[in-house]
């Protein structure tokens, strides 16, 4: 029983990390359909934002809280620029988008390497997040609880924005039926730019938070990219709800497999489950029902 609770908790915590990394992608890839291979590098940019903020401010606690909104802006701006300069010109050519953003990702990695050095840098964990909390016989690090809370806040915020704000309604309208939305007078260009800004900004926030548990190096983003795509694909394109459930399910699966074998074998197990699942349900957990013809 203890074992089971422990695995569930670990699954939740792993899932919330996956979710945080994938949330931005569920907007840009899930809703807009842009395969952005540089998403991992936006996460990395968030990591370095946390590092720079901490260098400037000093106090780890204060700088973490300040770095979160700055990380959003840094990631968002990078995404906005990428969309305006490149992706916008390649909307009809997904394969080209894929290659171009992959290239941009490599460039960003090299930029990070040249500005911060190839070696990983250290972002200190604030005093109030050090140590662990005992929950039902399992010790969960406070940093993971913080990330769980942040993931919940981020998902709630995105859901509220999409559901209740005019901008959110416009985004949903464009996703639902682009031509009809355009006919109704919505500037799809502006909506695309805004969606990309928010999605990339969320990657920046994820980056700031992930410095608490992982490394901050030029290749940091790469370790999250594949998992983020998996979450969005398994969850179903365009549904935040799908991403949440998929992230928690994948996290729990990983934890359960890992307890019974090694971590690298568990990864293989998770991949197999996803492949089988996508065979049975190619559209993922949830699909967006639209009235469009295609």
């Amino acid at each position: 029983m203890d074992m089971l609770v422990g695995q569930l908790l670990t699954g939740l915590s792993t899932g919330s990390i996956l979710l945080l990394a994938a949330l931005g992608l569920s907007l840009t890839y899930g809703q807009m359909g842009v395969i952005n291979m540089a998403h991992g590098e936006f996460i990395m940019a968030g990591c370095y934002t946390a590092y720079v903020t901490q260098q400037v401010i000093g106090d780890a606690g204060v700088s973490l809280l300040i770095a979160l909104p700055i990380g959003f802006l840094v990631g968002g701006l990078m995404g906005f620029i990428l969309e305006a300069l490149l992706i916008r010109r390649l909307y009809h050519r997904p394969l080209d988008t894929l290659l171009v953003t992959f290239g941009v990702g490599l460039i960003l990695q090299q930029v990070a390497r040249d500005s911060f050095g190839a070696q990983a840098v250290n972002v200190s964990v604030p005093e109030f997040l050090r140590g662990g909390v005992d929950i039902l016989g399992t010790t969960l690090p406070k940093t993971r609880l913080f990330i769980m809370a942040l993931a919940i806040v981020a998902v709630t915020a995105v859901t509220l924005v999409l559901r209740f704000t005019p901008a959110g309604r416009r985004i949903r309208a464009v996703v639902g039926n682009r031509d009809l939305a355009e006919t109704a007078g919505i500037s799809t260009r502006k909506v695309d730019a805004a969606t990309f800004f928010i999605g990339s900004g969320l990657a920046g926030i994820a980056g700031v938070a992930l410095t608490l548990i992982g490394s901050t190096s030029p290749t940091t983003g790469q370790s999250y990219l594949v998992d983020a795509f998996l979450v969005v694909v398994a969850g179903g394109m365009g549904r935040i709800k799908g991403a949440v459930i998929a992230a928690v399910a994948l996290g729990t699966l990983q934890a359960v497999f890992e307890t019974n074998s090694t971590a690298s074998l568990a990864k293989v197990g998770v991949f197999i489950v996803i492949v089988v699942f996508l065979q049975l349900r190619p559209q993922g957990l949830f699909t967006l029902r639209t009235r469009s013809l295609a």
């Binding site: 890839y29 807009m32 359909g33 842009v34 395969i35 909307y91 009809h92 997904p94 394969l95 988008t97 894929l98 996703v175 639902g176 039926n177 682009r178 031509d179 694909v233 394109m237 365009g238 699909t287 967006l288 639209t290 469009s292 013809l293 295609a294």
Partner: peptide, 13 residues
């Protein structure tokens, strides 16, 4: 899903 930049299976592969 009517989406003018829907990723194709080729792109996914």
């Amino acid at each position: 899903m009517q989406n003018r930049f829907k990723p194709t299976s080729r792109a996914l592969a």
